[in-house]
Design a protein around this nucleic acid. Structure first.
Lengths: 351, 351
DNA sequence: TTGTAAGCGTTATCAC
DNA sequence: GTGATAACGCTTACAA
C-alpha cells in the first residue's frame, strides 16, 4: 500500500498524490484533488513517514530522556512536553535512564539512530563527551540545570530551597534537617545548597547528619526520616520532594511525633498528593507541567532555526498545614493546637 | 555522514561496512572488520535507521497509547513496557489520549505512519473501526479488558473489587459506598460491577447515590467523598484507585470522621503512596509494572509470529490500617482504638 | 496543472 | 570475502 497504489487508483502520478496529500501550496486541479483524496480514503492509505523523513532529513519525532516516568515529577514534565509536541504534529520517543550513564548513552544513541529532530534531557546529565557526540546533529535542551552547555528550562532550586528553609527558621525552628534526593541529581544538590545557605544566613550551624541522602520516593523519605530520628533531635524536616515528605510524615507518626505540633515538614514540587495529605503538606510548588511545555517549545524554536535561550520559571512556597512554630519556641502559641479544621471550609482547594 | 563515508575511509564497499556493523553471521576477514570498526568510530558514525527500516519493513519502534502518564497507574505500566522494550533494543513512542476518541484516532494514525512494529493500548479503547484500520498492518495488544478483539494483559477487576467489598462486608459494614473512576474507563466500570455483585451476594441493597463517579485523581476522590458525605450515611468507602482513596481520607478527616474508627477506606492498585499514608491504606494490589512488562512481551511474541494470547494476572487485597469493623457493629471491638502503632516495628514495609 | 526521474541511506541479491 | 546494484516509498526539481 504505497503512494503509487493511490496514484494508480486515482489515475494520476505519484507526484500528484504527494502534492495533494501534503497540500503545500502546489496548485492541483480541484477534481484531481478530489479523486486523489477519494482514492486515498478508499485504500485507507497511510503515508510512510520513514520514506518521507529519509528524503526530507527530518522525522517529526523528538526524543525525551528521563530518569524514571514513575516519578510524578517527570511524568508531569513528560505530559507537558507531549501535549505541545502532539499539538504541533510531532511524536515523542521516550527513554528511561535511571540516571545510569550507560543507559543514558545507549538511549541517546538509539534516538540519534532514529534521527529524532531534537532531544530533551530531563534530570540526569549528559557528559561533555556525549554532548560532543550530539554536536551538530540535533538540538539538545534540558529541564533543570545542566552541567554542560545546554539551554534549559528550570526553577532556581537553590533559591527555592532557601526560601522553604527560611520559612521554617522564621517560624522559630533551629533544628532543621534535610531529606535529600540522590546525590546524582543536580536538583537534589541544588536544594541542599539552598538549605545550607539559609541556615548559614541565619547563623545556624547544622548538626552533623542533619542531611540524609536517599531516593526520590516515599519509601526513600520514610527510610531517611527513620535514620534521622535515630540520630538527631529535630523540630523541622525539609524534604527534597513531596513523596519523600509523605514518607517522612508516616515515619514521624510511627515515632509518635505529631505534625506540625512536634515536628514541621516541608515538601517540594506540589504534586497532587500534597494537597490532600493529612496534614496537608506545606511545599514549594514547581510548575512541572509548564516546564515540560516550555522545554518542548524551546526545542522546537531551536529546531526552527530561531535562536532561543533557557528560562527560569518561578517556584512558590505554599504554606499549608504541616508547618508551625516549634514546641516551646517564641511563637509557639501561634497556629498551635488546631490540627483539625472546624468544618468543611477547610484548606483543600479545588483546582 | 553515511555508510559510504565509513566505507571510503576503511577502503571497502558500503556492503562490507553493513555486514560488519550488523554482524549477522556473514563472513568478513578479521582485519577488514577492524578497519571498518575503526573508521566508524573515527567518524562517530550512527547508522540511519530510517533507511534500514524502509528496506527491512520494520522499525524496532513500538507505540504506546495511554490516557495520561501523570496517572501513576499508567506510568508504572509504561515503565514496565519500556524496560522490556529497551532490553530488546526497541524504542517506544508514547501518546497521551485523555480517553478522547479523536486524540486516540490521531495518535493511532501517527503511530501507523511512523510504521511502528506494534501498538499497545493501555486504558481507553479503540473502536471496531479503528481496529479494522489497523488490521493486518501491525499487531495490537491491550492492558486491561478491551471491548474489541484484542489480546490483553489484565487483572480480573470485577473479582478484585468484589473481594475488596467483601472484606468490608465481612468486617460487618452494611453501608458501603463506591467512589468510581470515569465511566469511560472499562476498569472503573468493572470495579463498580464487582462492588455491586459483592453487595448483591451479601443481600445488601445499596442506597441510591452510593456510587459516585469522578476522576481518577486525588482531587476527584476528595470531591466525590464530599458529595457522598452530603447525601449518605456510610461506614465504609471503596475507592476506584489509591489516589481517590487518599483524597477521600482527606475529605473524611475534614468532616471530623476518623479512619478506620468511624469510616473504613479501601483503595485500589497499591501505589507507593498507599503504604505510607496515615492510616496506611488497605488496597487491592495490582501488578502494574509487571502488566507493562507482560504486555510488551506479548506484543513482541506476536510480532515474532508466535501465536500468543492474553493473560489474567492476580490482584491481591492488602489489608493495612484503613479498615476496621464499623462502630457498634458485631465485631466492633476487634482492631479498634489502636490507630497508632506502639513502636517502630510498624506496618510500613521496605520493598 | 501534471508527469518524469533522481535520490534520501540502507541492505539483500547476485556476481566475482 | 568482497563489491556492484537494485530496491524500500517518498518528495522535488525540472520538463512538458
Amino acid at each position: 500500500m504505497t503512494i503509487h497504489d493511490v496514484a494508480r487508483l486515482a489515475g494520476v502520478s505519484a507526484a500528484t498524490v504527494s502534492r495533494v496529500l501534503n497540500g503545500a501550496g502546489h496548485p492541483v486541479r480541484e477534481d484531481t484533488r478530489r479523486r486523489v483524496l477519494e482514492a486515498a480514503r478508499l485504500l485507507d492509505y497511510y503515508p510512510n513517514r520513514l520514506a518521507r523523513s529519509l528524503l526530507r532529513r527530518e522525522t517529526a519525532v523528538v526524543g525525551l530522556l528521563v530518569p524514571d516516568v514513575s516519578n510524578p515529577y517527570y511524568a508531569a514534565i513528560l505530559r507537558g512536553a507531549e501535549d505541545v509536541a502532539h499539538q504541533r504534529g510531532l511524536a515523542v520517543m521516550l527513554c528511561n535512564t535511571d540516571r545510569d550513564p550507560t543507559k543514558q548513552r545507549q538511549a541517546l544513541r538509539t534516538l540519534l539512530e532514529h534521527r529524532v529532530d531534537g532531544v530533551i534531557v530531563a534530570g540526569g546529565t549528559l557528559t561533555a563527551a556525549d554532548l560532543a557526540r550530539v554536536d551538530g546533529r540535533v538540538p539538545v535542551v534540558a529541564v533543570g540545570r545542566h552541567p554542560a552547555r545546554v539551554p534549559c528550562v528550570r526553577v532556581d532550586n537553590v533559591q527555592a530551597a532557601r526560601q522553604a528553609c527560611r520559612h521554617l527558621l522564621d517560624l522559630g525552628h533551629t533544628q532543621v534537617a534535610f531529606l535529600a534526593g540522590p546525590p546524582s541529581s543536580y536538583t537534589a544538590r541544588d536544594r541542599v545548597r539552598g538549605y545550607m545557605s539559609a541556615l548559614r544566613e541565619a547563623g545556624v550551624r547544622p548538626d552533623d547528619g542533619s542531611v540524609v541522602w536517599s531516593e526520590f520516593t516515599a519509601q526513600g523519605g520514610y527510610a531517611a526520616a527513620r535514620q534521622l530520628l535515630d540520630r538527631c533531635q529535630v523540630t523541622a524536616v525539609l524534604a527534597c520532594n513531596d513523596q519523600m515528605a509523605l514518607g517522612a510524615l508516616r515515619a514521624l507518626w510511627e515515632a509518635g511525633l505529631r505534625v506540625p505540633a512536634d515536628v514541621s515538614v516541608v515538601g517540594f514540587d506540589d504534586t497532587p498528593a500534597a494537597a490532600v495529605s493529612v496534614p496537608a503538606l506545606t511545599t514549594v510548588a514547581v510548575p512541572t507541567y509548564e516546564m515540560g511545555r516550555r522545554v518542548m517549545e524551546l526545542l522546537l524554536a531551536l529546531r526552527a532555526g530561531h535562536r532561543a535561550s533557557g528560562v527560569v520559571l518561578p517556584a512558590e512556597l505554599k504554606v499549608r498545614e504541616s508547618t508551625a512554630p516549634p514546641r516551646g519556641g517564641p511563637y509557639a502559641s501561634v497556629g498551635r493546637g488546631k490540627t483539625r479544621p472546624e468544618g468543611r471550609e477547610a484548606t483543600c482547594r479545588h483546582p
